[in-house]
Design a protein around this nucleic acid. Structure first.
Lengths: 254, 254
DNA sequence: GCAAAAGTGTTGTCTCTACACCCATGT
DNA sequence: ACATGGGTGTAGAGACAACACTTTTGC
């Protein structure tokens, strides 16, 4: 869904039947958030508010633009960040994607044909909420804790759920979380990251035992400073070691 | 890519920028095959063969048709089979997907604009080669062992590789292979299935130990008949037990 | 009786879960 | 001195890889 129409006018879009939707997850050590856009619709005559809800962030694809590039552009336009972890997870194209009255009314009011099907390619990304100054902060884009989201416009709730599922599956198999930690981090910070994103609690000793087997997690001779408790050892994530030692898990599950 | 143009004319297609490509894997206990379509192009004047290669199977999406339905229709048109395991795995939309001369010439000769980008949604499916009577058998659709495929038209080699990767990952985590076995099967047949599709060899005793922990694999009081060796016990896959006992693996990997 | 595939057990190593206390620092 | 999070070990259970011989059938 196009929620940033002002940007589209600058270039020729590929066509009006395909878009990219980004599920932008933000992690802040407290909770997992998702970036949502306010959608408000007023009655044309009375000016009365008809509804006020939220959508994911999306946009059209430009000519000469790869799908990944379109997703990265949407992310950049909203956050000013580049080179962020971004992954395609599913494409949504049911002919009945848009069938609620609110959604049809909103499209019609925004100059689009509510009966024209749009296929949208879903991407999710994961970034540090605190590193972002939202371009539209305080206006209509904001972070919402994922656990608070119960309803979204269009079929965006379904897209969000599928994105969350894909993110969690990925995080359990690959080290995609280290961009969210400081370059030097403590094991407690790392544990907290996994707990927040996976929505579980983990045993501290067992977590450390597991982690001590990850060769790409390099302990430093350096400790935290200025904390009112025993200072923790710092670690770094070594991508080179990860790339050279990683092994496919082809062992099949019960 | 549209390789079954005769079918498209019957209905209105959604638009000319989106298609579905199916990577149809066929298993036959000997090897893993993929269904490919011959693509031959002749010189207009001399009638000389310009090239002769292979493509995956694909088609446009009709109005009022869900993406999954489009993929199922392509599969049905080629094999006459319905209710086959089918899964969306990735969407390909690079602006430079089609940039080889052969591909451009072929599109132009088939009345399409070689510079018009088509985004294609990839599905893979998995079925029993022997259960299929190819609708176009002997004409231009045929099974090719996956290991023999080194080159395909367009970006279809990339699509095939990504499909194979997705299939293998899925097979290691979920019981998607039982449609390929007879309703009552032996453990050796099941082991062979995993070996062929994953491209590995497994230890018989360890395989059976693992399998004996899968409660949804129910041993019968019934044995093979008419085989010139010790007859094997037969098993059935119980989907109900699988659904009720399956558990998410959220344990994260090293 | 022979060919062909079925079926079975052990050992050593590793990983998992569950669980409770002392340590180093800032205030 | 106290509050705060850091850091550690064990035991029992289950899973893993490696490895070789006997059994049952059809011919």
């Amino acid at each position: 869904m196009n929620t940033t129409a002002n940007l589209v006018e600058q270039k020729i879009v590929l066509n009006n039947s395909v878009s990219v939707d980004c599920v932008i997850f933000g992690f802040d050590f407290m909770q997992l958030n998702v970036l949502l856009v306010d959608r408000v619709m007023y009655d044309e005559k009375s000016g009365k508010e008809l509804f006020n809800d939220l959508t994911l962030t999306g946009n059209h694809i430009f000519e000469e633009e790869d799908l990944d590039e379109a997703a990265a552009r949407i992310l950049f336009d909203l956050t000013g960040l580049k080179n962020i972890y971004l992954e395609q997870f599913y494409t949504f194209g049911s002919p009945t994607r848009i069938n609620r009255e609110n959604d049809k009314a909103w499209l019609a009011a925004n100059g689009r044909d509510p009966n024209h099907r749009i296929i949208t390619i879903g991407y999710y990304s994961l970034l540090d909420t605190d590193k972002v100054t939202l371009e539209w902060k305080g206006r209509n884009v904001r972070w919402v804790p994922v656990s608070d989201v119960t309803e979204l416009a269009f079929d965006h709730m379904e897209i969000l759920q599928k994105a969350l599922q894909a993110l969690r599956k990925k995080l359990t198999r690959e080290p995609i979380g280290f961009e969210l930690l400081p370059p030097k981090f403590t094991l407690s910070q790392m544990q907290r990251l996994y707990e927040v994103i996976l929505g579980v609690t983990l045993d501290k000793r067992n977590f450390r035992k597991k982690v001590s087997r990850m060769k790409y997690l390099v302990p430093l001779d350096e400790k935290q400073k200025g904390v009112a408790h025993k200072p923790a050892r710092l670690y770094v994530f070594d991508r080179d070691i990860y790339e050279t030692t990683k092994t496919e898990l082809l062992d099949f599950a019960i």
